[in-house]
Design a binder for these strands. Structure first.
Length: 863
RNA sequence: GCCGGAGUGGCGAAAUUGGUAGACGCGCUGGAUUCAAAAUCCAGUUUUGGUAACAAAGUGUCGGUUCGAGUCCGACCUCCGGCACCA
């Protein structure tokens, strides 16, 4: 093999077969070594792998392989997030069943994973659409129902009146159904929720302890949870003169700024507020009803899109509320900018201190009173910053903090206010009115109401062999499927035909990986592996999935199934894979996007791109922006085609080399070729070295200077690469350091026995350091270097600290911060010697003459 | 609007704790090899001046702290991402 050229097509399948035969990536609970659980987010089986997958899973595989080589008991599992809408769409389009389409995709993608050489423990594979998986999710849900952590409530959905189905937000285009083109209406239907808000505080505080999670993710989650401390207080219905009747209705309002209450000039109810009817005067009913109709027609998106503008809309109810601070009446409005879902759905409006109230007050000609003194040069509208209280009687002169506290105490003493923490976070709606999902295990009995499906009747199985009639869910369309008996009274009853949000399945699969075949949701093996040491996935999941799975982990903990508080110790969010876009505009002004593989470039003598042409006919091509690889921009690259041309190792190497994992990776055809060249050079270096025959034992003490220099570089490199792989995750700089070492080795033309021994030590380390990234070629070269055991289990090269000692170090001399000289000195040289050597340097003399040396500063840098 | 992150050669990037800016790769230029090309190898490649040694400038803009700033501080510009009437 040593005299053959590098041929990945031959070696990659052979090495993959060797791993399979040796069960190389099987994780066993009883294996020695500290456990290391490394996991990448499971894919949705949408068809074929794209470059984003390749990048994501290469990162996970590199980290897993690094730790395995370092003696850890590594578990790296893989599975399929197999339920979801695309399967239904494909089924309708191709007239097939979603299950069939899904399983075919899984087969294809699994073969691609194997081709890429990912070291998964397939014995732990999870497929979320199989009853053996989702049955446990159903069981857990029935328990949560009994505990009140799962409940049913009306909520709004996008309803397509033609297709008679619910649409996801992304299926609503310009207010119309994506298939039917019908105008989508908002409809309130009963849906299941999980009480994630019960865990809001714990989810928020837990973030402080996740010190190995990206700050961006933690910040997004904090904002999403949106904790705010304030006070809820009662305002009584009164007449326009402030007279309160003995049986007056009471409106609760929530505010974080009770200190501004003296500036309240009106109050607002959300249009959906339950007291709207009671508090609307008869002569205002018509206008109020019109307003509510107008608001309810608008979708959620329309309603929120209005923000920032002055088009906040509302209507006067004719009623007044009593402001306890000023002891006077304020008019009560309905307005679209107050949301029923937050706080109490009612607010006190202070236009002087709140921009939204300011805009509304202007539109409806309501008075504005400032209660915090704005800065002298303030030219804006509502002032929301710090300042002294004004126009506020007994609060005047106090800063915001003190005024707020005093106002709260005042409300509490009078027993009209209660301190309150509100969250932006809402309970998690888990109902989907779709077919291809896990059936929600509930039964509706005319007498007993909602009843959880008893444990001995689980799982509720989703039929897989179905045909679609239009877009409606086959289990909703089937009059028989839903028929059942009430588990409590035995009467005829109906099943829930809604299915779970697919985020339910992805919220606990990481724990199920630990317990393949368990006859319960989890067993004692879960705690042996959890929490995960490393989780890897896209930043697009920063909020939803990464919040839900933290929540679900706490549910599992509180059900006694795991003992940790958080599912993942360290989180890595990889960046997007992007590529330049290319297009041609035709005569009708239509833009045709051209794949990068069809384009070639001309460059000027400095290497700047000056033009692009189509390879096929030489016509001129325009260069567009660098964007995420997508079908619509036709800038995607097919991983399979690349593996055919270069092999999996080159694809893996380039995706790790082009940028650090958390940044976006810009695709570059010539960059891939560079990676390919590097692997061929390494192959050649090892092959030529091996052809020189056996080598002498290394005598580290007896080496000449040049040999010592190579060994120093080698052990510096091992130290750097180890750190880059374990702590920093900067695989790009790890690869750069290995390339640098390889470049030096190429210039190290020492044929002596000790030169040969030094080269052998270095090449053996190079092959091992690259092994996590390009495992196939490294296994092969490792064997070529004389090893008999495979490389996947290590050993990782060790740093010989004594080899890193230097006879001379470079002393950098700066004069007034500018580099003026480099001196070679022994590291132990006394300071005085170093100073006099520096002062004797011609260049230093030139820049210090006619000047007085005022200060000498010593500083250390690495190397 | 609010909250994050980023801006460094022709390009992707590196510089880990305030201490040699541009490692490594791509591209480009020149050369070797070749009948020729591909492949490979060698040298050069921030800008300006200089054969060179070297000098000056240089990390989005303007200012500051420091012996010394890509890195810290202040103001601003641009781009990317998230949230978007949350009281």
């Amino acid at each position: 093999m040593a005299n053959q050229p590098y041929n990945p097509k031959e070696i990659e399948p052979a090495i993959q077969q060797m791993w399979a035969e040796q069960n190389a990536f099987r994780a066993r609970e009883e294996d020695p070594g500290e456990k290391y659980y490394c996991m990448s987010m499971l894919p949705y089986p949408s068809g074929a792998l794209h470059m984003g997958h390749v990048r994501n899973y290469t990162i996970g595989d590199v980290i897993s392989r690094f730790h395995r080589m370092n003696g850890k008991n590594v578990m790296q599992p893989m599975g399929w997030d197999a339920f979801g809408l695309p399967a239904e769409n494909a089924a309708i389009k191709n007239n097939t069943a979603p299950a069939k389409w899904t399983y075919a995709n899984i087969r294809l993608m699994k073969s691609q994973f194997k081709r890429l050489g990912f070291g998964y423990d397939w014995a732990r594979e999870v497929t979320t659409c199989k009853p053996e998986y989702y049955r446990w999710e159903q069981l857990m849900f029935t328990r949560l129902m009994r505990q009140g952590l799962a409940y049913k409530q009306n909520a709004e959905v996008n309803w397509d009146p033609v297709d008679q189905t619910v649409l996801a937000n992304e299926q609503v285009i310009d207010g119309r159904g994506w298939r039917s083109g019908a105008e989508v209406v908002r409809k309130s239907i009963p849906q299941w929720f999980l009480k994630i808000t019960d865990y809001a505080d714990e989810l928020l505080q837990g973030l402080d302890r996740l010190d190995q999670w990206p700050d961006a993710v933690k910040t997004m989650q904090r904002n999403w949870i949106g904790r705010s401390e304030g006070i809820e207080f009662s305002m009584q219905h009164c007449d326009s003169q402030g007279r309160v009747a003995s049986d007056a209705a009471t409106v609760e309002v929530f505010t974080t700024r009770p200190d501004t209450a003296f500036g309240m000039t009106y109050a607002v109810l959300a249009p959906e507020h339950p007291l709207v009817d009671a508090l609307t005067l008869p002569d205002r009913r018509g206008e109020v009803a019109d307003f509510i109709a107008q608001v309810s027609k608008a979708t959620e998106i329309d309603r929120t899109a209005a923000q920032g503008g002055a088009d906040k809309r509302g209507v006067f109810t004719g009623s007044y509320l009593f402001n306890p601070f000023t002891a006077s009446a304020v008019p009560l409005y309905l307005a679209d900018y107050v949301l029923m879902g937050y706080g109490t759905g009612a607010i006190m409006a202070v236009p002087g201190q709140d921009q939204r109230d300011w805009e509304f007050a202007l539109s409806y000609d309501l008075p504005i009173v400032r209660t915090v003194e704005p800065p002298v040069d303030w030219e804006g509208e509502a002032w929301t910053g710090e300042g002294e209280a004004i126009n506020s009687q007994w609060l005047n002169g106090l800063p915001v903090d003190e005024a707020r506290e005093k106002a709260m105490l005042w409300l509490e003493e009078r027993d009209i206010g209660r301190r309150m923490v509100n969250y932006r976070l809402r309970d998690w709606g888990v109902s989907r009115q779709r077919y291809w999902g896990c059936p929600i295990p509930a039964i509706y009995c005319p007498d007993c109401g909602v009843v959880p499906v008893p444990e001995d009747q689980l799982p509720v199985i989703l039929p897989e062999n179905v045909t679609f009639m239009g877009v409606q869910s086959p289990i909703k369309a089937d009059p028989e499927w839903r028929k059942t008996r009430c588990p409590d009274c035995g009467a005829a009853a109906e099943r829930e035909t809604d299915t779970f949000d697919t985020f339910m399945e992805s919220s606990w699969y990481y724990a199920r990986y630990c317990c393949p075949g368990a006859d319960s949701q989890l067993d004692e093996r879960a705690d042996q592996w959890l929490p995960m040491d490393q989780y890897i996935g896209g930043i697009e999941h920063a909020i939803l999935h990464l919040m839900y799975f933290r929540f679900y982990h706490k549910l599992l903990r509180d059900a006694g199934m795991v003992s940790s508080d958080e599912p993942a110790v360290r989180m890595l969010c990889q960046g997007m894979v992007v590529a330049e876009t290319y297009y041609q505009d035709d005569d009708n002004g239509r833009r045709r996007w051209i794949n990068p593989s069809e384009v070639e470039f001309s460059r000027d003598s400095k290497g700047r791109t000056i033009g692009a042409t189509l390879i096929s006919d030489g016509s001129s091509v325009s260069i567009g922006a660098v964007e995420k690889m997508s079908k619509s921009k036709n800038n995607g690259i097919d991983p399979d085609g690349l593996i055919d041309r270069f092999g999996a190792d080159t694809v893996r190497l380039f995706s790790m080399f082009a940028s650090p994992p958390d940044q976006s990776l810009e695709w570059s055809e010539s960059g891939v070729e560079g990676a390919w060249r590097f692997l061929r050079r390494i192959w050649k270096q090892v092959a030529m070295h091996v052809q020189d025959g056996p080598f002498d034992e290394l005598d580290a003490a007896g080496l000449d200077e040049r040999q010592k220099e190579i060994r120093r570089l080698l052990h510096d490199t091992i130290a750097k690469v180890s750190d880059d792989m374990e702590r920093r995750y900067t695989f790009n700089t790890a690869i750069a350091a290995i390339m640098e070492l390889s470049n030096h080795l190429a210039r190290f033309e020492d044929d002596s026995p000790q030169g040969h021994a030094v080269r052998h030590e270095a090449l053996s380390a190079v092959v091992r350091m690259l092994a996590p990234i390009t495992p196939h070629v490294c296994e092969t070269l490792w064997r070529l270097l004389g090893a008999t055991a495979p490389l996947y289990a290590g050993p990782w090269p060790e740093v010989d600290e004594s080899a890193r000692e230097r006879a001379l170090v470079t002393l950098v001399v700066q004069v007034n911060g500018k580099l003026r000289a480099r001196l070679e000195l022994p590291p132990a040289a006394p300071e005085a010697d170093a100073l006099s050597a520096a002062l004797a340097n011609d260049n230093v003399v030139r820049h210090t003459q006619e000047k007085q040396i005022r200060k000498v500063i010593h500083f250390l840098t690495n190397c």
